[in-house]
Structures are given as structure tokens and as C-alpha cells.
Design a protein around this nucleic acid. Structure first.
Lengths: 354, 354
DNA sequence: CACTATTGCGGAAACGTTTCTTCAGTCCGC
DNA sequence: GCGGACTGAAGAAACGTTTCCGCAATAGTG
């Protein structure tokens, strides 16, 4: 039975002032009410000696809002993939004295689940909400979400919410440019065929880069596959194209696809990057850097996104992020840096016919 | 400005009873105080019509404890690895109307960080705590932890806390048995050399299985390497041993090591499992199942562990878990199931000398 | 029939804050 | 010296619960 924590009353008693005064002092500036330095010191000393910590429940009750932020996610916390968003959000929240309450609502949340999740968050008076998704996607916002809710790695299809997403198109553009810069001209795009949002955005970037380089995209060099290792293996058929069509560089939808593509190349006795350059997407931990050769890829800025979400919610607008109006709300697109490793190299001199 | 949520008072008014009665009815059984069915119904109807939800802040203030559980972790939430523990814990908590408040304290938490994290949790009156670690390890518990704290994937070195850990030794035993069952007798152990707790435990299991099979462990078949891909590659030197010593099966400390070992084998022109059987540990997502061939491995029961932590905290002791007294506290060891894939096969007939 | 139990319910205190209001002094200008 | 402005601080009312206590009415007992 711990001698329950000291309260304002205890501090007041010890400092010889009223509860009011203690509260005012401890909460810092309150306009209109000035407390002389002497009293202030006395109070602070007493609080420190007692190890006083405010009771957040009482505070929340009175203020009708708590120092907690709700983090609602589909499976972010379940799958190891985008977990950096969560971690960064938590850290940033903590830096500001906020706690993160995480709730995941499963892969295909039915409305009842969502509502229950939201309910418990509201019951705890969370001051605001982040809604995060594993894969960049568009979602129909739940009714009853506060307007301040931030959508992370997804965009709300209605209402006027702020969203934070990776700048897919620019990244795909950069990836393609990287290949172009190494002299490649026959550049394949091993894309996703499951209709992910990222899919069309990245394709656009790929096309733009090609167009700017004056290269007409060859439809034979574009393949839609499952965004997994198996898809990449399947994409190996690009390597079976005739010599004058066969790509010398491949931009893969993600690192798993690249991993599969590596395998397909190996099975054909081809080596990366000697015979073919490969660039991935995601910079997935344990994959990208561990492949042989280590994979050049575009890093998804998950940590930055999570951090920005909390900063925005807390009003610390580090105006480094540019919010653009976007129909239903504002969108911040975060840059995906290129991570150069060893899977892209200069194009080989023209192959001599056998 | 939403017309703030209905309170007990509103429900009481509508049902024509007192606040007290509403509270009693809504909180279900309270011994000594019986409320006739008619009143009960009336109250429940009113509450439903109003969509009443208790204010957890007020409740927590009054009861001096909240419906929230603190989840303190080193980097569980940061790294995609053991995140299933977190997810499962959250889900189980939600099933019981509890919320999980996650705080991660970084890789090498200094005491100040820890204390601050603990402070904010205590300020929020969390009713209990889970302390989780990324890798199975022994930790010195922070002073001031409630006795009910549960250690997840780690063991407290003092105090008397309950801990939940994977049963490493049994798993290593099973892994080795799997190799033995396929006729292997020269079984290598590609272990960790960084002194992880799991290291010695797994080694014990390996030895025990060998002993039971009447095989004397060959020290040349035991190598300590970094528990990463690079370590596995390095472990490839086992394959350079003379024919009569060279292992036909390898038990790798984890899947990343196995991944590296695959590479080493390939570089030597050897194939898994044809030339050598490999078994891993962890069943790491995106790795084990995606290697070529898919890796047979021991699955770390992260989800089960997370779930059990919450159940234990909530007193729902699903006595499926066996708690064993253990010096400083009780320990539950959870079984690591064998996941059979394609990297273990029957030992090849004796090699003919070239 | 006069008592005690029992049943059904409401009053009100507490939980620890924040914040509005009040109030006693002090200092000032005239 | 005297009203008024300003200072410094305290009183007290919330915030929405839970829960102790007690009261009325009914039911049970001798």
C-alpha cells in the first residue's frame, strides 16, 4: 500500500499557501495573475521536495481533455512494416508530455469495431486522433471523427481532414532518374497489379522521368505483379525478352518484388547489377540492406511521417512540411530519399551478338 | 461545439431515478444492493437512448485507477521484429475494455528516460504495467514498479515479478530433434557470439538432443557468429570442413543467420536442402517464408506472449500457461512451435569419394 | 400489533484539479 | 487623508464518477 502520491493540497500545506496558488505557480504563466518570485520559489521547492506529479485524471476531468493522443491503425502495429510511424509518433508525443494510446482495428475493420475503438478513445478524452494505415490508401473517414484528426499514410475521401503521405510520384521519378543517370534506357517497371494507390502514382513518376529523357515507354517493359517476393520472381520473365528489348534496369514496386527479381535473375544465371540494375522501394528493414548485392531503393519516410503527424496535432507546425490544399483537406507529401547501395550500376557496353 | 456527451445525471433524469441508482445498475452486480428488474430496465433503456458512455477520467479519478495498461518497451515498437507482442497485447486489452498506453524508452534507456516514462504512466493512473523487450534478456527492474508488473520477453533480475519468455531450450531441443529425425548426425550449431540470453539456453537444448541421441557434440561444428545475415555468411566456413566432419544439417541461431548461411552455401555451389539442411529460429516475417527454399524454423510465440501478459494482468488466468516459481518470481515459458517448410530433408546417402 | 429486518433508493462526500470570484491590503494621486 | 486602482492570495464551485450511509416503506417475526 504505497502512501498515495502527494496532491496539490500537500504541496500547498507545505508551502504555506493555498491550493489555488500552487496550481497557478505550477502551471506557469497565467495572465492577469502574478505571483511574486518569493512565493513562486517556495511553492516550487515544496513541490520538488514532495515529488509532486499532477494527477492527469483529475486534470483531464476538469479540463475535459487529456494529455493523450489516440493512434488508431489498421494493422500498423500488427505488421512489422510501417511500425516506424508508430514509434516516431510515440516519441514525439512523449517529448511534449503526451501519451499515445494505440488501438488497432484489424485489417478489415467493420464499422462496429471502429466505433468501439473510437468510443473507448473518446471515453478517455483523448485530445486528438491519428488514423494510420499500413499501406498508402484512401479511406472513408468514420463518422464522428473530430475535425482535427490526422490521416497518416492515407487520405480521407470526404470531410476536411489533413493527411500525411509519402510523395510517391516524385520518388518513382527519382528512382527512374537514378537508372537513367547510369545510362540505362531500357528501363522496366515491375509494378503492382492489385490496384494499390501507390501503384498509379509511382507509374506516373516513372513515365514522367522517361518522357523528360525523351524515351517512349515500351509497354513490353511494364509488368503488373503481386507486390511480394513471388511477384518479383514472376517478373523475371522480363529477362526472357529478346536482346534488343530486354531491360538493363528494373524499377521494382517494392523491395520484396526486388528480392524476388534477384532470385529470378539468379535462376537465369544473370547477376545483379552486372547484367541488370535493380532499384526497389520502401527500404524495408532486414530486406533491402541484406540482399546480395545490397539493394538501392527509395526509403519510405515513415518515421518523419509519424513525427509530423504529432507535431501538426500539437500545433508545432514545423513549416518544413508544405501543406497543399486538396479538395477535401490539406495534404503533406513527404519526400522519399534515395538510398544508394549496390544494385544499380552503369549500363554495360552494348552486348556483342553471340 | 458538440453538445457534450451525456452524463450519469442525464440518464438519471430521463429514467426518473437518482444518479446513484444509474451508477449501480450500469456497473452490473454490486453485492448487497439489489435493484428490481423494472428499474433496471428503465435505466438501461434511458442509457441506451442517450448513448451514454462513462467518462473514464471521472471514473479513474474516483477509483484511483484507470482502465488502461501501460506498455513500456525498449524498442519493441521501433523495430518490426517483435511487434506481434504489442499487437496481441493491445487486442487482448481491448477485448476486456482496456486501453494500452505504449511508451518506448529507446534502445539503451538511461534511468532518467525510464523514470520519465514511468512518471507519465503513473500520472495517468495506469492500473498495471507490462515491460517488454525486443530480445529475450535479463533486466534490472526500475525502482518503483508495481509488484503486478509483468515482464515480457525478459526476466527481472530482482524483486518478485512475473515473467513471460519463450522456452528457448525446449525449442532448440526440438529443432535439433527435427534434424536428427531426418537422419542427420553431424549437426552444426551456428550460434550467437554476443552473449544473448537466448544463446546459452538454445545451446543447452541442442546439446541435450544430441546427448539423448548418443551423439557427442563435435566442437568443430559449433560456431559463434553475429546474429545477423553477415554472421550466417561467415558461418559458411562450416562448409569448408573436411568431408568426414562437415555437417549435413545446421541449426542457425536465427533466421537472419540462416539467410546468410543460404548465401554462403550458394556461393560454394551447394544447395539447400539437397547438400545441407538448415533450420532457423524466429520465423521472422518476410524472411523465413520468403527464402529459397522456404526456411524450416522455430516460431517465436510473440503473439501468444503478448496475449498472456494481458490476461495475467487482468487475472484471467488461462491456466493453459504453467507458471513456475523461479527464485525472484514466477516464469511462464511458452512453447515455440516448429514450422516445417522446405529447408530440412533426409540426409543424403554417404558421399562417394571423388 | 409492535418490534426488527429487508428492500429499494436517494443524499452527499469524496477523488484532485482548474478557474472564476472575491477580498484584504497597499500604493498612488490629488 | 481618501477613494480608487492594483497586488497577492484564498474560497469555492465545478468536472462526472463511485460509494458510504441512511431513510422510507414494506415484509417478517413473536
Amino acid at each position: 500500500m504505497p502512501p498515495s502520491r502527494p496532491t496539490l493540497k500537500d504541496v500547498a500545506l507545505r508551502a504555506g499557501v493555498s491550493i489555488t496558488t500552487v496550481s497557478v505557480v505550477l502551471n506557469g504563466k497565467r495572465q492577469g495573475v502574478r505571483v511574486p518570485e518569493a512565493t513562486r520559489q517556495r511553492v516550487q521547492k515544496a513541490a520538488a521536495e514532495l515529488g509532486y506529479r499532477p494527477n492527469e485524471m483529475a486534470r483531464g476531468l476538469r479540463r475535459r481533455s487529456s494529455q493523450a493522443i489516440g493512434f488508431l491503425s489498421d494493422e500498423v502495429t500488427t505488421t512489422p512494416f510501417a511500425v516506424a510511424m508508430l514509434a516516431a509518433a510515440q516519441t514525439e508525443a512523449a517529448r511534449n508530455g503526451f501519451l499515445l494510446i494505440t488501438v488497432n482495428i484489424g485489417r478489415s475493420p467493420n464499422d462496429a469495431d471502429m466505433e468501439r475503438a473510437l468510443d473507448s478513445l473518446v471515453q478517455h478524452q483523448v485530445s486528438s486522433l491519428v488514423v494510420a494505415h499500413m499501406f498508402h490508401q484512401e479511406v472513408e473517414p468514420l463518422p464522428g471523427l473530430p475535425e482535427t484528426t490526422i490521416f497518416l499514410n492515407c487520405r480521407a475521401t470526404s470531410g476536411s481532414f489533413r493527411s500525411i503521405i509519402p510523395s510517391e510520384t516524385a520518388a518513382a521519378y527519382d528512382a527512374t532518374r537514378e537508372l537513367l543517370a547510369h545510362g540505362h534506357t531500357r528501363i522496366a517497371y515491375l509494378g503492382d497489379d492489385t490496384g494499390l494507390v501507390a501503384s498509379s502514382l509511382r507509374l506516373a513518376g516513372y513515365r514522367q522521368a522517361l518522357a523528360e529523357a525523351g524515351i517512349r515507354p515500351d509497354p513490353r517493359l511494364r509488368l503488373g505483379v503481386l507486390p511480394r517476393v513471388s511477384g518479383g520472381v514472376h517478373g523475371g520473365e522480363l529477362l526472357d525478352l529478346p536482346d534488343d528489348v530486354r531491360p538493363t534496369g528494373v524499377f521494382c514496386f517494392n523491395d520484396q518484388v526486388a528480392m524476388g527479381f534477384y532470385r529470378a535473375a539468379r535462376q537465369r544465371g544473370l547477376s545483379v547489377p552486372h547484367d541488370i540494375s535493380v532499384i526497389g522501394f520502401d527500404d524495408q528493414e532486414f530486406i533491402a540492406s541484406e540482399l546480395d548485392p545490397p539493394l538501392t531503393t527509395m526509403r519510405l519516410p515513415h518515421a518523419e511521417m509519424g513525427k509530423l503527424a504529432i507535431q501538426t496535432l500539437l500545433g508545432h507546425d514545423t513549416s518544413s512540411a508544405s501543406w497543399q490544399p486538396n479538395g477535401t483537406g490539406e495534404v503533406a507529401r513527404l519526400e522519399c530519399p534515395l538510398v544508394r547501395r549496390a544494385s544499380v550500376t552503369a549500363v554495360r557496353p552494348v552486348r556483342l551478338p553471340a
